[in-house]
Design a binder for these strands. Structure first.
Length: 191
DNA sequence: TGCACGATGAAC
DNA sequence: TTCATCGTGCAC
C-alpha cells in the first residue's frame, strides 16, 4: 500500500457535503481525514461521528442562532467548524447541508493510517494528534491543509447508531440516535 | 461588565 | 468523581 507520498488522496467534492447531516454522517465513516503539517501528511480513517442536524436541533451550537462562534456553522458546506471546549480542548466538525441550516458533523474518532503517533479515540484527542485548532476554523475542506478523502479501497463494515455523547441538556434531542460508529473498531471513543 | 457553563480528557 | 481553564452567550 502506497500511502507515503500520497498524491492519490484528493478532497471530496463540495456536493458530498451539501446534503442533510443525517445522510452525510454515516457516509463519512471509513473515509480519510487528511492533515498536512510541515509538508508531512497525517491520515486517519474516520470511525466515529455525530450529526448535528441544524438550528432546530437543541443539542447543536447553532440552536442559539447566528453568533460570532456559530457563523461558520451557518455558512456554506464543506468547511471546518473548529471550536475550543472547556477552555482546553479543540473539537472539529465539517459543515454540511445548505448554507443557513446550521448543520455539522462532529468527528469523534480516527483510526491512524499514516503519520499519526498519538491517540485519536476522542474528538479532542484527534485534534491534538492532527494539530487542529482554531486557526483552521472556517477552513475550506477542498485542501491542502485539511480535507476528507476517498480511501484507495473501502473496507466493508457495519454501522452502530447510539445517542450522542455529552448533550443531556438537550431533552428529547439527546435521545436521538445521531452518533454513528464502525462496529467493533478499537479506536471508537469510550463511555 | 459579570457570570454560569460546556459536543473533553486525565487523574484520583 | 473531580478538576483544569477560558471563550461564549446572556443577564443585568
Amino acid at each position: 500500500m502506497v500511502i507515503d507520498d500520497d498524491t492519490s488522496l484528493q478532497p471530496l467534492p463540495r456536493a458530498f457535503y451539501a446534503r442533510p447531516a443525517i445522510e452525510v454522517a454515516p457516509e463519512l465513516l471509513g473515509r480519510y481525514l487528511v492533515r498536512t503539517v510541515d509538508g508531512e501528511r497525517r491520515v486517519g480513517r474516520i470511525v466515529e461521528v455525530e450529526a448535528y442536524l441544524g438550528s432546530h436541533d437543541r443539542a447543536a451550537h447553532s440552536s442559539r442562532g447566528v453568533t460570532p462562534r456559530t457563523r461558520v456553522m451557518f455558512g456554506p458546506p464543506g468547511h471546518a467548524y473548529v471550536y475550543l471546549i472547556y477552555g482546553l480542548h479543540h473539537c472539529m466538525n465539517v459543515v454540511v447541508d445548505q448554507e443557513g441550516e446550521g448543520a455539522a458533523i462532529l468527528i469523534r474518532a480516527l483510526e491512524p493510517v499514516h503519520g499519526i503517533h498519538a491517540r485519536t479515540q476522542g474528538p479532542a484527542l484527534l485534534c491534538k494528534a492532527l494539530d487542529i485548532d482554531r486557526r483552521l476554523n472556517a477552513y475550506d475542506l477542498s485542501g491542502p491543509e485539511l480535507f476528507v478523502a476517498e480511501p484507495e479501497e473501502m473496507q466493508p463494515f457495519k454501522i452502530v447508531r447510539r445517542p450522542r455523547i455529552g448533550v443531556d441538556y438537550a431533552g428529547a434531542w439527546a435521545r436521538r440516535l445521531l452518533r454513528f460508529y464502525i462496529q467493533g473498531n478499537s479506536c471508537v471513543s469510550r463511555r
